[in-house]
Amino acid sequence: MRPPRVRRLVVAALVVLLAGGAAACTGSGNADDRRIPANPGAPTGAPTSAPPATRAVPVYYAADTPAGTRLFREFHAVAPGDPATTAVRELLGTPAIDPDYRTLWPTGVTPRGPVTHGGGEIVVDLTGIGRAPASKAVARLALQQLVYTVQGALQSTDPVRVLVDGQRADQLWELADISVPVVRAEQTSVRSLVQIDAPADGATVGREVVVTGEAAVFEATLPWEVRQDGRVVTSGVATTAEGQRFSPYRFTVTLEPGDYELVVTEDDPSGGAGRAPLTDTKRISVR
C-alpha cells in the first residue's frame, strides 16, 4: 500500500489531471477511455517530490452492488512511458484509491514482461498466478477487469491474449477460458451503471466542485446528493449525454469548507418495485 503522504500526492495529481472533465470519456458508448491527458505537467504548487510529469491511466476494480459484483473505473496518476504495462501493474499490485473498490486478482500476480499490441490483439504475459478465485463468475470478471484496464490504457478495443509464464494456456485457474484472445464483455453486464470519475476519493477541492463521470441510466437521468455527517446538504439531478447507454455527465455544486460525501445514483422509475439503484460515492474535502 502507498504510504499516506504518497497517496495524498497521487490524489492531488489526479485532481489536476481530471479537472475540467478530462477524464469524461467519449459518449459513443464504447468506453474506450479516450481523452485521457497524455502528458500533463506537474500539479501547480505540488511538493518538489512529485514527479515532473505524469499521465492518467484508467484502472478497473470491483465492488459489490445490488446487481452483484461490478467493475468500477478510477484513474491513476503514473509516470509517462508504457501506459499498458503500468496500468496492469497498478491493477495487480496497487490498492484502489477508493476503499470501496478491490481487485479480484490474487496477491503476487505480476506482468512477466511488457504488454505488447499488434496484429489486432493485445498480449499480456502474467506470472505468479496464485490461488484460484472462489468461482467461475469471479474468475471471468477478473479477466474482464484486466481486459478493460489494458484496453483503456491503450485506447483500443482489440481482444486480449493472456499468457501464463510465457505460454499459451486453455484455462486460467481452470475456471476461465483463455485459449483464444479475450474480448470485452458488454458493458452493462459487467460495469457499474453509475460511475464518478472526478473528484477522486479523498480529494481536496475548491468550493466550486466539478463532478464528472459516466453512467448508463434510464432517460439519461442521474440524481445526486452531497452529504455531511449523514445529512443531505444539497441535491440535484444531472443529465447524461444519452440514456440507457454509457455516456458522460457533468455538474457543478458550490459547497462551504468542510468534509463531504458525493453520491450519484440511478433513477428508479419502478418506485422501489425493482432492485435497489446502483450508486457510486466519493469522499472529498472542500477548502
Rank of each mutant, 00 (worst) to 15 (best):
A42C: 10
S49N: 10
R35S: 07
T54P: 11
I36R: 15
A46L: 08
A31N: 13
A24F: 07
N30C: 11
T44L: 05
G45P: 03
T48Y: 04
D64N: 03
A67W: 02
D32L: 08
P52L: 09
D64I: 00
P40V: 03
R55P: 06
P37T: 05
R55I: 05
R55L: 12
A38Y: 12
T44E: 09
A67P: 02
P51L: 05
A42M: 09
T26C: 15
A53W: 06
N39Y: 15
N39W: 09
P58Y: 15
G41T: 07
P51A: 05
P58N: 06
D33T: 09
A50F: 13
V57Q: 10
T65E: 00
T54H: 14
N30L: 08
N39C: 14
A67V: 00
T65P: 02
A62W: 00
A46N: 05
I36Y: 13
A31H: 13
D64K: 05
P47N: 04
A50T: 14
A42Q: 06
P37W: 10
A53G: 08
S28P: 03
P40C: 04
C25W: 15
P52A: 09
A42L: 08
T65C: 00
P37E: 07
G45R: 00
P40A: 07
A67C: 02
N30S: 11
P52E: 08
A31T: 07
T65L: 00
T26K: 12
A67R: 05
T54A: 13
D64Y: 03
N39R: 12
T48D: 09
G29H: 04
A56E: 04
G27E: 00
P51G: 08
A56G: 15
S49M: 07
A46C: 13
D32P: 02
A24E: 10
S49I: 07
Y61H: 09
T54Y: 14
A31W: 12
P47D: 04
A63V: 07
D64F: 01
G27W: 00
T44F: 02
A63H: 09
A50N: 11
I36H: 15
C25Q: 14
I36N: 15
T26A: 15
A24I: 04
P66M: 00
P66H: 03
S28D: 11
P58G: 09
P47V: 03
T65K: 01
V57E: 08
G27Y: 00
A24K: 10
S49Q: 03
R35H: 14
P37I: 02
S49G: 11
A63R: 13
A53T: 14
P58K: 03
V59S: 07
